[in-house]
């Protein structure tokens, strides 16, 4: 892999925070090494407090590392010029909420030296991309959380960046909101852009990321394709059904599935994937109704617990 292809390079990065006046020091990240390649979607995965935001702030030149260095597009992260090629959406962004969408985008566009028709065209395109054409002249304080996140992404794209960095772009959004963000990210990849985003939720990354890095307590514990890193294997399949007879449930339990009954539904956990078809068949034959079939995989939390357990 040649140097050109490396968009983000982090070398031995450490950041120590001092809490309070003469309080104790907290190392938010410790000796981080990471490379992100051109054109990929990289998921920066880790539980709350792992150090994701700290890493991103160093990349954006908002804070200075205690030791180590970070490069973006072959320039030092503190270089102001390199920001011309970056788009950034901070964690839980607050924007000037007295501005309308248009004023807001114009302001950031002007910070890149954009003006006139060029700026206007880009603004309109972006409003379309993030689906906010109708809210173009609405002040930001009237926006929902999802709309704010989308206008936030729009401002991150006003300069047609080569690299887009998003800090927890999906947190606090409902499933539809998350899907919209995922779609935007995928479209960016199609345009040949590199996307680096952080999250603490596995499903966010597993659907779209080329590679992920897993950060825990300030240390990178794993980097690679998600299915390489984690047990992608289905742990069990949960079948939810109605109108299943008592005898049949007893039979299933006897066959090794665990069964929970609620007032209306039953939930059947099938550990062996190969047996799922058989059980579905049984339910249908007994005039039962299958409501849903959900394969359950390892959660990030479980993965983390396993990691910590393995480490200690």
């Amino acid at each position: 892999m040649n140097m050109e292809d490396i968009v983000i390079k982090i070398e031995n990065l450490t950041k120590v925070f001092k809490k309070g006046f003469r309080g104790k020091s907290v190392a938010a990240i410790k000796g981080l090494n990471l490379e992100v390649n051109e054109g990929e979607i990289f998921g920066f995965l880790g539980p709350n407090g792992a150090g994701k935001t700290t890493t991103i702030k160093i990349l954006m030149g908002l804070i200075y590392p205690t030791t180590g260095k970070a490069w973006i597009l072959n320039k030092e992260a503190t270089d102001v010029e390199v920001k011309n090629r970056i788009g950034f959406l901070p964690e839980q962004p607050y924007f000037y909420d007295y501005l309308t969408s248009r004023e807001f985008l114009r302001f950031y566009g002007q910070l890149f030296g954009l003006e006139g028709d060029e700026l206007r065209t880009r603004m309109n395109n972006l409003l379309t991309l993030v689906g906010l054409e109708d809210a173009a002249d609405l002040q930001l304080h009237k926006f929902s959380k999802g709309m704010l996140q989308r206008i936030g992404i729009a401002q991150a794209l006003i300069n047609r960046p080569d690299l887009i960095v998003l800090d927890e772009p999906m947190s606090g959004l409902d499933p539809i909101g998350r899907k919209e963000i995922r779609d935007i990210i995928l479209r960016l990849k199609e345009d040949g852009k590199t996307v680096f985003f952080s999250t603490h939720i596995i499903p966010d990354v597993e659907m779209i990321c080329d590679r992920v890095g897993i950060l825990m307590k300030g240390e990178l514990v794993n980097v690679g394709r998600l299915d390489e890193i984690m047990d992608a294997k289905v742990k069990y399949v949960e079948i939810i059904a109605r109108n299943v007879s008592k005898e049949m449930l007893a039979y299933m339990e006897a066959m090794g599935s665990s069964v929970y009954e609620t007032w209306e539904h039953v939930s059947i956990k099938v550990e062996d994937e190969n047996r799922v078809d058989g059980i579905l068949q049984l339910i249908k034959e007994g005039k039962g109704r299958v409501v849903s079939v959900i394969p359950q995989r390892e959660t990030l939390e479980e993965h983390f617990i396993k990691k910590i357990g393995g480490a200690s």
Binding site: K57, K83, N84, Y94, F95
Partner: peptide, 14 residues
């Protein structure tokens, strides 16, 4: 406080 500064300083503004 409102962290709007993050967004400005992550643009090419010294």
């Amino acid at each position: 406080e409102k962290r709007t500064i993050y967004n400005i300083l992550s643009k090419p503004v010294p």
